[in-house]
Design a protein around this nucleic acid. Structure first.
Lengths: 362, 362
DNA sequence: GCCATGCATGACACCGATGTCATGACACCG
DNA sequence: CGGTGTCATGACATCGGTGTCATGCATGGC
């Protein structure tokens, strides 16, 4: 591959002049510039980043560590593709910054992370973003102080800058919307409580109930480990069966995520229950491949992973440019409710009936 | 960030000796080695790749161009995640080679490819892989001769080394298996014929019919543009409706891919037809998030994108090491049939009945 | 006509690692 | 005891750009 010296020789100028043409810094005569450009074209010259960054002490590279690419073949993917969307958002935020985004994949093995970090440091990345596949706490190896790090979809105990989904608020927004549609008995099939999403979303659910002055009924809240290999579907079936047999059964099933909702569709169908006329279903994530393909399309709340990634990218750029070192706590990201056909807007008379039922029982 | 000189000064040796410790090449005294290692640890030294590769004229980087990450938010993603799996396979094949894989995403804009190629060349990648999201013909800008290129899931007219799915054989394998299960009337809802998959798979379908000496019935083959925005589902409905009304209707619907199969499940349900007892459904891709989650689980054929990627990675390593310059045509990749609950094994009496029906008509 | 000014260009050092060659200290052999 | 080989180490040049400073030439004001 040709160098700046080759170009200089061919154009009959000094290497420095070629450099000036490349970077448009110093003044260059018209004829000289043309000669240089012609020589570059003839040689198919491409500048060496290595040499350049050695002098400049700037790599223009941002490192991205993720399992987005490798973790997809696991037996049953309970998540959507959040990390992928996050990566996408990060790219969008960074593509105008002139930085090159280098993506390293953990190949599904977390223990490779330190190695990947080292590889990135050896490339003298100007910043690092770590993307987790679901909202969780992580513990990365310490970085040298001069390389900024942003955590996306995860957080640590050291207060590293983080961007997180606002699970509590998102769930509250969705439930609030269900209430506005006339629903009063809203079941919530939550995720495992050992993950932040499984803790925060029930809080949001209760926030919304409280705001509407609806009493919280423990019988309508369950944590279901629905993606357990064998028994998951059964657990889900039993839970739903139990809830639908209540004296005042729920009119909507709020699911922990869209994947669970998809499974719930199948179970309800097997039970002979019609969606949405006999019971509504709502999801969480707005994982469009599911939400828009299911019939009827799924009402869900948009956890905008894209935006989350973009925010992480922006945060990192800030840190690199020296702004916003004041670690002002995690950035929380929320998104809109998508109202689709899987939940009925209850007509007033229905609402009244339900209310009566409830009042009769009391 | 500290340099080899800092380490040398702290350890009281020359930079060259530090280099020797780093690369374990020349002989180094025991005490010296320890002193150097201690110094490196104290400074948190990480070698600069830029400087290293300037001398070595080897970057150890392989460039990967793909839309795998960015193209996921399109309104309705008709494909599975093939490109993602391919990328994954490539990474697996390359991770033991000591190469660093740099992934650049097109952000959904093909016209950015030349720019990405340039960025990679400026990093002096030792090889490039271009990954397409579905089997197709592409036309990349020409590369300098000394940088090898491999096309994954696509091909061009210049005979660039390529790795492709063996659509024809895969479809034939699946249909052969259906025939072995006793099915004689097999419908094929193919993809649009303007894509290679839509042309090659019907050939495989007919190969299998011919091998079993079954007559090809044009009424059982349709190209359905099922993911068209509005009318897609209707087209699919009409096609299925027409086929099921035939005098001798099909006992299985072979779908162009798993996504289409998912839609077909919904349509059959709406028609009041039970899967698999009234009609079987088969997919293509083994997109597990769908195939394993649907109820009943989907019989499909595994287009092993992972392996496809791995083959592409291996091919590139060969080219880099100078082997196999003999462009021996594209590498074709196939995979196994996954037999799940969506297709019945017809019992002999059924087979007989069907055969009678057919013979009666003749 | 002289000097200040600005423009176009080049010489040279430097970034950090490593290949080449040289050097000094020993050990071993005849 | 001198010559030769091995080991441990260092001096120096080099990779390909770019920052710094210097130089040569034309222009213009006084």
């Amino acid at each position: 591959m040709s160098t700046i010296y080759d170009v200089a020789r061919l154009a009959g100028v000094s290497p420095k002049t070629v450099s000036r043409v490349l970077n448009a810094d110093g003044p260059v005569g018209e004829k000289t510039r043309e000669a240089v450009e012609k020589a570059m074209r003839e040689l198919g010259y491409v500048r060496s980043n290595a040499a350049r960054m050695m002098r400049a002490q700037k790599s223009g590279i941002i490192g991205l560590i993720t399992g987005a690419i490798s973790t997809r073949n696991q037996p049953s993917t309970q998540q959507g593709l959040p990390d992928l969307f996050i990566v996408q958002g990060i790219q969008r935020a960074l593509e105008t910054s002139g930085m090159t985004v280098m993506i390293a994949d953990t190949t599904g093995r977390k223990e490779r992370v330190p190695h990947l970090v080292d590889t990135f440091l050896s490339h003298r990345v100007e910043g690092l973003i770590y993307v987790a596949e679901y909202h969780q706490e992580v513990n990365l190896p310490a970085l040298p102080d001069d390389t900024p790090l942003v955590l996306a979809n995860c957080f640590d105990s050291r207060g590293t800058p983080a961007v997180l989904p606002d699970d509590r608020r998102l769930q509250a927004d969705l439930v609030r919307r269900l209430i506005a549609a006339g629903h009063r008995r809203i079941a919530f099939l939550s995720l495992r409580p050992d993950m932040p999403a499984g803790r925060l979303r029930p809080l949001g659910y209760r926030d919304a109930l409280a705001a509407a002055e609806l009493e919280f009924d423990p019988a309508l809240l369950a944590h279901v480990d629905f993606d357990q290999p064998e028994i998951g579907p059964e657990l889900l079936w039993d839970t739903i069966d139990r809830m639908l047999r209540l004296d005042v059964p729920p009119t909507v099933l709020c699911c922990g995520n869209d994947q669970m909702a998809m499974m719930v569709y199948g179970i309800l169908r097997s039970m002979g229950r019609k969606v949405p006329d006999e019971v509504g279903v709502a999801g969480f994530d707005n994982y469009r491949a599911i939400a828009e393909t299911l019939y009827p399309p799924l009402t869900t709340v948009d956890l905008p992973y894209n935006a989350l990634g973009a925010r992480a990218g922006e945060r990192l750029l800030q840190l690199i440019s020296g702004e916003g070192r004041n670690g002002s706590g995690p950035v929380l990201v929320a998104g809109p409710v998508h109202w689709r056909g899987s939940v009925n807007e209850l007509r007033p008379e229905n609402v009244v009936t339900l209310r009566n039922l409830r009042e009769e029982k009391e």
